[in-house]
Design a protein around this nucleic acid. Structure first.
Lengths: 235, 235
DNA sequence: GAGTAATGTTAGGTCCACCTAAATCGTATT
DNA sequence: AATACGATTTAGGTGGACCTAACATTACTC
């Protein structure tokens, strides 16, 4: 006999606490899925710096827990529950990053690692208080959107600076967040979220790109430019 | 051939990161040691809610890592390294508690568990910034002394309210921090660090104590009173 | 000083999350 | 259609941190 459930008093599906590694896997899988393709074993292994064999094993456990759908040799996809968990972790991570920058004077190049550890032990209450304390930010310091408490996220895709049309005025919306050295360099170029930037020349054979940030003209490689997401400025 | 070491450039003994359980053991052992006796296996087991057998095993590993001195059937003592580690964890815990109360509006009854988790993943830098942000507090919200960055701590022993002489004016310096219900009750009685309190009567046979907090007269059990540390008011 | 109660340890086992080495699968090519 | 290569999985193993059950030691009491 199944339990009769009232209107909205579903006894809370008890999202029993996930381990830190599990949360890391889910975040990684989410990132690959957002880029279209299902997450391949090797991709996950590389991103988390662990052996591919370990991923096979863990992914089995994730499937047992109903967090991913798994077909041997076919890669993994998040289930609805897995996606919820991934977004919860992502929210924690990004709120923490924003809080460290806005409330504790951290530089945007040094928040990632700290957040990477704290995201696994901070309670939802703490995250909500942090968010409230800095005015409910919508993005983290690198421009990445912060999922809401309810688990929704603004997934609008963006162009990279490398792909921007020459001569078009654009605005930086987001930059890669993991490499502190890159972040310091981007900062020195003025390439921060919100900054206006125009691609003025693309040298052939994957050569350097010429960009104008504010009134300064700079040269950057395509690799760097591809880590900078931009939106065209509607003026 | 041993490495020649210069004045103060000892190459940093690399206090390689301890696991969360290890930090918890060290904190527990520290607490027992502070009360005189070496920590007994059973004491540790009970405090950490794990089986005594597990403690025997873990304590072996702590000894291998040079964090405790261990004699079978004789209990454990922290080594200098163990004590340093314990105090580092204690500092994290107490700074976090203070920060949550002063910067994020937490009540003193709800910070313990949050701090218990965060203390294992917060970096020293974060702890220092938190401490600076709230004015380098000297005690946590329950009155417990916060170890300094350098690992010193004010260990002045205190009387409990239960042992205070009848009729003496005293001031609450510290209360037990683990039981949220007790903290809420203490709060309702006005028994917060800094509050003046006078024991006016001790009923026989471990009966209730009569105390005056501010101008109010209250009755409390000896168990509760023994969780309240006081210092006599020099007037 | 013997016997028992209390305390502590050993033995053997589990689960998690990783590892390396050795299959195996899928497919891209010829 | 056979093969070779890369991607993936299986097999077997490690260390950490816990468990229960059985055994050992110490301490206490009479």
């Amino acid at each position: 006999m199944t339990v009769r459930r009232r209107k909205k008093s579903k006894p809370a599906p008890r999202p029993e606490p996930l381990t830190a590694p599990v949360e890391d896997y889910l975040k990684a899988i989410y990132a690959f899925e957002r880029d279209g393709h299902a997450a391949a074993t090797n991709d996950i292994a590389q991103r988390l710096s662990i052996a591919p064999a370990s991923v096979s094993g863990m992914v089995q456990r994730l499937a047992d827990q109903g967090l991913v759908a798994y077909e041997r040799y076919r890669g993994v996809r998040l289930t609805a529950a897995g996606r919820r968990a991934a977004l919860r972790t992502l929210r924690r991570h990004r709120v923490i990053e924003a809080y460290l920058v806005h409330a504790l004077g951290y530089g945007w190049d040094s928040v990632h690692d700290e957040a990477e550890r704290l995201e696994h032990s901070a309670s939802d209450i703490l995250i909500d208080r942090m968010a409230a304390a800095i005015g409910e930010p919508v993005t983290d310091p690198h421009g990445a959107p912060i999922p809401t408490r309810e688990g929704t996220i603004d997934e609008t895709p963006h162009q990279t600076l490398a792909d921007a049309p020459v001569g078009a005025r654009t605005r930086v919306v987001r930059v890669g967040d993991e490499d502190p050295g890159m972040l310091r360099y981007l900062d020195s170029l003025g390439l921060r979220p919100g900054a206006e930037v125009m691609l003025t020349n693309r040298a052939p054979f994957d050569g350097p790109l010429t960009i104008e940030v504010g009134s300064a003209t700079q040269q950057v490689g395509a690799a760097l430019a591809s880590r900078v997401l931009v939106a065209s400025v509607a003026d």
